[in-house]
Write a protein that binds this DNA or RNA. Structure first.
Length: 881
RNA sequence: GGGAGUUUAGCUCAGCUGGUUCAGAGCAUCUGCCUUACAAGCAGAGGGUCGAUGGUUCGAAUCCGUCAACUCCCA
């Protein structure tokens, strides 16, 4: 069969993915093999694949494919999460722009119907993209966090934790997203440095009798629009400036509220004016002060970020517009003393990045974390769950777990699991899996209600409250504990994810696993870095520096994309994405393709018996080299050093196999290929494709199938790895010597400007003639020598060079520049002499000889001997010039 | 403000518990080649005071202290 000039990825990708699917190779059912399980970090159902996913999925596919070829029953579960805030925002937006419907016009049921329609329409896009990448997920297992069984599992866990006292409802200061009108957890707030202003505002003072003293106190605030919510002024008790104000009051401007002056060491004397206005409803620290000093709480904001009636002024104005108006009003009244530039950090909503989060007091549902965190912390600290790379993230994990705060899990949204709390008209409530159970619970307490009397909590649960069950519930491990699958697949083997969700997700999954199965959810966590552009900037839609993945696959092929992303991705480090790496990948494709073409050319013209053992230097050498790399790669996989494993393979294939091995066994022009050598070469090629398969599945399968006729079912994807054979160190050293000799001679030819086509005569002065005799054929071909002679004397009129301890003389037609030759040799000599001096210095140092390990001393002695021998060789050569 | 990490060739990074000619790889650069698998290629080459500075040691890119720059996480 005629092979195309270059490898064409698109055809191979479609063909083999379909073949693998048809054969059911991705499907997994429990059997008696050991399982290797990975659950995909569920992407957002409305999302499309970006570079971060690509890196993630590629890593997972590499691990899964390698495990599949190593005797494991591999199961990679795909799926997505419902992403409540993001999806609800998209659906709301779509309803408004496409249908002109406001969310407020719809009932919950109607809205959810639209949301599910949206999900059905867009939810599958990401799966087809993951397939394009070649990922070998078990597509019969696609799971969605709003599937019926999953929904039930979440409700079950909620009611269970509630009954254990681990979930409670309470009023707390929470992070409020005024755009989405929902609470956020601490992890959903992102802080940014902002240039703001500090406004110094004067408050009049009254004494305890409510008489103006004529004095005033100046506070500094970043948020003048909240002063209408002030319920105290706080100063440090040690601050001499304010000591006399004990028992006095201040008058809040604009609203003329009389508030006490309180004293607390919390206030920093140095900051601002040393006087703090306290607004318990709108600042977490003020809130805590308020609790301590029993202050009134005046909430001056509505849920959409506008001023409430409680503010008294500028009612209905947006908080930022109100700020400007308050400043103007204060200025007008002469109360604004000064404005000061000030850098501060503001919290923004993760899901609405342009929206400043508002601290707000509200009644929400919380998970008590301390108790759940303990076993989850131990699991990691004791090494039961191993984090890669190294302990870099261990410290972060530990810190968070030891200082964990309660988790706010209620969201004022509809798209998600509705909180199963049922309220009676009198305000009492029961948490139960459904309304009937709630009625029964009420009844047990002596209250009789019908379903119509009860009202279910309007809010839904945080998406992470469903995601934390992912490794269990994808196998129905919560909804049907102890089913065959959960017992077989759980705990899973590896979780591959971005380091940015260590708290959102990883920590909480470990908590849930420990709580519900008393077992870790996975043995290893592999954190990938962030994908950045080549200038090191994060990829983002705003910058437009995020490439279109499908377009990249179209241009370079999936294998090249996988190669490019893995080769530049050392474990845990950020990845600087550069198309040059993908180009390198497609060149690698092509290199392998051409090697295949070369080998196929030999196939048609072989001679001899393929079954006769062949004793060829190149074969013996490559066998050892292959085994060496196999062993190395096995270790690298154990350490999750995938990038290094790929580099090792790249070099093994390109340099050792293509540049050396194939050249060494290549038959002469129009000569037949020895059948034994041919068979061995095909075998090596297969082994290489097998090792590379997890990284570049399509190309390797294609080449494997083309190398020879295969019976049905002989597919590379399921071919099992054999144990690495023996590594012959002597063989490796001889191969190394051969390569070095060839390279040095070629270098000499180059330096002396001998045309590639010109043949030389090679004279070798060596003590190990036998070693060179066995490689004469390949040696003369590689340096273009017409004859090889052995000598014990310098050969006049030749280029002289020394490799290790052997001397080589190149006889040539070209007239040589003796001066240049001499210069080169003298340079080498000078270097060696300097080196010798340093070694001798070391050896003459008594302390070194006494203290160093005997091996180290021995090594130095050998270095000395080697250097002396080389110096002798070069000196001799110089004499002959 | 608290914590963690990084700093090695023009770029991206390897270099494990100090000791082989230890200063490496890939990409980029330069030179010579259309050699009958591959010019998306072949054959070669050049390039670095290992962030700075002290110390430990017979010996430091490697261990310790201080400083500087950058990155990330947390408040």
């Amino acid at each position: 069969m005629e092979l195309s000039k270059n490898f064409t990825p698109a055809a191979a990708e479609g063909k083999w993915y379909q073949h693998w699917m048809d054969k059911g190779y991705f499907r997994s059912k429990p059997d008696n093999r050991p399982p290797f399980t990975i659950v995909i970090p569920p992407p957002n159902v409305t999302g499309v694949l970006h570079m971060g996913h690509t890196l993630n999925e590629t890593v997972q596919d590499i691990l899964v494919r390698r495990a599949r070829m190593s005797g494991y029953n591999t199961c990679w579960v795909p799926g997505s999460d419902h992403a409540s805030i993001a999806t609800e925002a998209k659906v709301v937006n779509m309803l408004k722009t496409e249908k002109g419907i406001e969310k407020s016009q719809l009932t919950r049921e109607e809205f959810l119907k639209y949301a599910f329609e949206w999900k059905d329409k867009y939810g599958g896009i990401i799966y087809s993209q993951i397939k394009k990448l070649g990922c070998s997920c078990d597509w019969d297992r696609v799971t969605f966090t709003m599937d019926d069984h999953y929904y039930q599992a979440v409700i079950k866990v909620f009611t269970d934790l509630y009954s254990k006292g681990l979930i409670y409802r309470g009023a707390r200061m929470i992070n409020w997203d005024p755009k989405a009108k929902t609470a956020l957890s601490d992890e959903e707030v992102q802080y940014k440095d902002i240039n703001g202003k500090l406004y110094h505002v004067q408050y009049a003072i009254t004494d305890s009798e409510n008489n103006l003293t004529g004095e005033s106190i100046t506070i500094a605030t970043q948020r003048p629009e909240t002063i209408m919510g002030d319920t105290a002024i706080c100063v440090n008790p040690d601050d001499e400036r304010y000591k006399h104000l004990a028992g006095h009051y201040a008058i809040v401007p604009l609203v003329n509220r009389r508030v006490p002056i309180i004293f607390d060491t919390y206030v920093d004397k140095e900051f601002g004016t040393g006087a703090l206005k306290v607004t318990p409803a709108h600042d977490i620290n003020d809130y805590n002060l308020g609790l301590k000093h029993n202050l009134e709480i005046v909430d001056t904001l509505n849920d959409d970020g506008t001023l409430s009636t409680a503010a008294g002024v500028f009612i209905g104005e947006d908080r930022f517009k109100a700020r400007k108006k308050v400043i103007a009003a204060l200025d007008e009244q002469g109360l604004l003393v000064k404005e000061q530039e000030y850098t501060t950090r503001l919290g923004y909503s993760e899901r609405n990045p342009d929206t400043v989060v508002e601290p707000r007091i509200s009644t929400q549902w919380f998970v008590k974390m301390a108790e759940l965190a303990k076993p989850a912390l131990d699991a990691v600290v004791e090494g039961n769950v191993k984090i890669h790379p190294g302990d870099r993230f261990l410290a972060t994990y530990k810190y968070w777990m030891e200082n964990v705060k309660d988790w706010c899990i209620s969201r004022q949204l509809w798209w998600g699991q509705q909180i199963p709390a049922f309220y009676a008209p009198d305000g009492t409530f029961e948490v139960a899996q459904n309304v009937d159970a709630a009625i029964a619970q009420f009844k047990a307490k002596g209250a009789t209600y019908t379903a119509a009397d009860l009202r279910q909590d309007e809010d839904c649960l945080d998406t992470w409250f469903s995601s934390w069950l992912w490794p269990m519930e994808v196998f129905n491990g919560i909804s049907q504990p102890d089913n065959e699958e959960i017992n077989y697949y759980y705990p899973t083997n590896v979780l591959v994810t971005g380091q940015d969700i260590i708290f959102f997700w990883v920590a909480r999954m470990i908590m849930a696993g420990q709580e519900y199965r008393n077992e870790k959810p996975f043995s290893d966590v592999y954190f990938t870095g962030m994908v950045r552009d080549k200038q090191g900037r994060k990829m983002s839609k705003q910058l437009g520096n995020s490439p279109d993945l499908l377009e990249l696959i179209e241009r370079f092929g999936a294998d090249a994309v996988r190669f490019g992303i893995m080769i530049s991705s050392p474990a845990g480090n950020d990845l600087l994405f550069d198309e040059a790496a993908l180009e390198q990948g497609s060149k690698f494709n092509n290199k392998i393709w051409n090697a295949l073409k070369l080998v196929k050319m030999w196939e048609a013209n072989t001679t001899g018996d393929a079954n006769t053992a062949v004793d060829h230097f190149a074969i013996r050498w490559f066998e050892s080299r292959l085994n060496e790399v196999k062993t190395q790669i096995a270790d690298q996989f154990t350490d999750f050093k995938l990038s290094e494993a790929l580099k090792a393979l790249y070099s093994l294939i390109w340099d050792d196999f293509c540049s050396w091995y194939l050249e060494w066994v290549k038959p002469g022009f129009e000569q037949p290929c020895d059948a034994g050598i041919y068979a061995k070469t095909v075998y090596f090629f297969e082994e290489l494709m097998q090792l590379l398969h997890p990284f570049m599945p399509f190309l390797t399968e294609e080449v494997y199938q083309l190398l020879k006729e295969r019976p049905a079912g002989d597919d590379l994807i399921i071919r099992q790895y054999g144990a690495p054979g023996t590594i012959d160190a002597k063989m490796l050293a001889e191969g190394q010597l051969a390569k070095e000799v060839i390279t040095s001679i070629r270098d000499s030819r180059n330096k002396h400007q001998i045309k590639p086509k010109e043949e030389i005569v090679l004279h070798i002065d060596t003590l190990q003639e036998a070693a060179f005799k066995q490689i004469e054929g390949m040696l003369s071909k590689q340096v273009n020598a017409k004859a090889i002679n052995y000598t014990k004397e310098p050969v006049a009129g030749c280029i002289t060079l020394v490799v290790q301890k052997d001397k080589f003389y190149l006889g040539t037609e070209t007239v040589l520049d003796q001066g240049a030759q001499k210069d080169q040799l003298e340079k080498d000599l000078a270097y060696l002499q300097g080196f010798l001096v340093s070694v001798e210095k070391k050896l003459s140092n008594e302390k070194f000889v006494q203290n160093a390990k005997p091996e180290a001393v021995e090594i130095e002695r050998n270095k000395k001997k080697d250097a002396e021998a080389k110096i002798a060789a070069i000196t001799e050569s110089l004499k002959s010039l």
